[in-house]
Structures are given as C-alpha cells and as structure tokens.
C-alpha cells in the first residue's frame, strides 16, 4: 500500500469509528477541553488519525492527521526551517486547535488560524467523509466549508485530515519588555508579531532579519526578555481593538493583546458586552449539518 493509500485507510477507519449513530465526541490533547462546555458524559470518545503525512517545503504546505500534536508538527516542519504559527500548548492537536478556533499570541502578525487552513477532510453526522477547500495555497473552488469548521467545536463534523499553509521560521525572534504606552509602541512599529500589555508593562515581539529586528527594537526603550508573560487563564474576551484604550490598571490581573483586542483575565465578568451574532441562522446550520445533534453533544458554540 502506498503511504497515501494508507492515510486514506486511516481516514476511513476513523469514519467508521465515528459511525452513523449515537453521540460521539472527538478527543484531542484535552488542552482546551472546557471551551464551550463539556461533552455529554454518554458520548463515545473517538480519536482522529495522527502523523505528519506529507510536508512539501517548496510548496509551503503540510498534510497531517487532525490528531497530530503541535509538537510533532513543529518538529517536522523545523527540519526545513518552516512553521505553522498556531502558538498553542505543544500537546494540543491540530484538529483540536482548529475546532476551538482560538489564535495564539502572535495573531497580530500571522492572523487568524483559519487563514492557515487550505483543506479539511471531516467525517460528517452520517459517518461519511467530506472534503472541502483544496490542496493548493490559493483556491476559490466552491463554498469554503473549512471556514465554518474552524471554531465549530466539532459540531459540524469530526476533522480527520488537514492541509495547512506553512511559513518560514523568522531569522530572529526577540521579546522586549518594560513600562511604555502600548498604543504608541504599536504606532511606531511596522507589523510587529505581538504587543501585550497588563496596564503597567508591555511585552513586544519583533521578528524578521536581525538588522530589522535591531532597528525596530532601537525605536523602543525596552529591555530584552526571554519571552511573553504567563497569561491569566480564567477568561478570554475579544473586544474591538480600540476598546483596549479604556482599560485602566486596576491591580487586577489581565493581559491584553494590543491591535488584536483579546484580553486574558482571571475576572469572572469583565463587564464587556460583545455583539450578538445571528444565532437563528447558526442554529439552522447546526440542525442541517447534524440533524440529530450527535456530534459533540453538550458543547455549545451558539449560546442561545
């Protein structure tokens, strides 16, 4: 059997594990297991195939099982100086990170994780394999289902295989920190990778060739540090980037992603209101794609 045939067989095996009836839930690295609520206790646990199945450095794409850990993925890609900037717990799985759909702290530069996804094969509620997107770095063939799967907490289907876009690992990565006005920092730099702020300190990540990194760092009066601070893990709120200007240092612990608008906090309620999306259309989609609600039951994307 060729390796491609073997991967296809693994996907089919996963499809039959998911099957066509009964509640199922996909288990990844359990690093963001609580997001959206716990799955119903009666749901059968399934595990997606894993392994980096093909990395083509000259195409800057990688095909892997959705159950592959970020650690394995980044180790394989690093052999060719490449990466997929998912920036989550290394024991998390690719499928898990996509299903939750949260980006890491270099979002400012690298964008949303969904923009790194080229193709997804998932198993739907009937236990059938569905392919969406395409293997090339550019593609507008048909409706872009991959977008819906990212952030769906597996309620539209169980991801089996993904093809991701890779990026070159930057020559130099440097973190700087100190007291500074984060919004001034943002306006001084050209496309920094990350600016974090806790009301007193900023942490800035600049990446690129070393002369640029030196020059950008020279614009700031900050000290070099090892890396980003620990982020409060209690809650994560996304607000309009400019709302961060209303944050005041109040002695409570929070870290905000400047330019992005994500706040990591331990506060139970931040008091911030987020816009209400079109819940009825979302629920309708859920119903059409999984009429009996057997995929990851208990988890909620739509909090209606």
């Amino acid at each position: 059997m060729s390796s491609e045939d073997q991967n296809s067989q693994e996907i089919l095996d996963f499809a039959s594990q998911v099957g066509a009836s009964g509640p199922v839930t996909v288990v990844g690295g359990r690093t963001q297991w609580q997001v959206g609520g716990l799955p119903d206790p009666g749901a059968r646990e399934v595990v997606a195939p894993s392994g980096v199945w093909s990395h083509q450095p000259e195409e800057m794409t990688v095909r892997c099982g959705a159950g592959t850990t970020l650690k394995e993925l980044s180790e394989q890609l690093a052999k060719h100086g490449q990466m997929v900037p998912l920036d989550m717990d290394p024991t998390a799985t690719v499928g898990g990170v996509l299903a939750v759909g949260r980006s890491g702290i270099r979002r400012l530069k690298y964008g949303h994780v969904r923009d790194l996804v080229l193709q997804i094969r998932h198993v739907d509620h009937e236990g059938k394999v569905v392919t969406s997107g395409g293997p090339t770095v550019k593609n507008v063939s048909g409706y872009d289902l991959c977008r819906l799967l990212v952030g769906s907490l597996g309620k539209f289907g169980c991801m089996a295989e993904v093809i991701l876009r890779c990026l070159p690992v930057p020559q130099t990565t440097r973190w700087l920190s100190g007291p500074a006005d984060p919004f001034e920092v943002y306006s001084k730099l050209y496309r920094p990778s990350s600016i974090l702020w806790n009301g007193e300190q900023v942490w800035v990540c600049v990446e690129g060739v070393s002369s640029d990194v030196d020059a950008e760092a020279g614009l700031l009066d900050l000290e070099e540090v090892e890396g980003p601070p620990d982020l409060p893990t209690g809650r994560r709120v996304a607000v309009e980037p400019k709302s961060l200007k209303d944050l005041v240092p109040d002695g409570r612990s929070w870290v905000a992603e400047i330019g992005v608008g994500i706040v990591h906090t331990n506060d139970a309620d931040t008091g911030w209101r987020v816009p209400e999306p079109n819940y009825s259309l979302m629920l309708d989609l859920e119903h059409r794609l999984d009429p009996t609600g057997r995929l990851n039951p208990g988890r909620q994307v739509v909090e209606a």
């Binding site: 759909g101 949260r102 980006s103 979002r107 949303h112 969904r114 507008v140 409706y143 872009d144 289902l145 977008r147 819906l148 990212v150 952030g151 769906s152 539209f156 994560r236 996304a238 607000v239 309009e240 980037p241 992603e257 992005v260 608008g261 994500i262 987020v274 816009p275 209400e276 999306p277 079109n278 819940y279 259309l281 979302m282 989609l285 994307v301 739509v302 909090e303």
Partner: peptide, 23 residues
C-alpha cells in the same frame, strides 16, 4: 438584514462571515 462577523478578533458563534466571502 444581518451582520456577519464583527470588529472583534473572535466573534461569537460560527464564522458566517467566512462562508459568505466567496459565495
């Protein structure tokens, strides 16, 4: 009339904006 997506980095719910783009 509805608004798909919003100005935050992680809008609540499914990415209806993403599926509308390219439709």
């Amino acid at each position: 009339v509805t608004v798909l997506g919003d100005l935050t980095a992680e809008p609540h719910g499914y990415d209806l904006r993403g599926i509308f783009v390219g439709s």
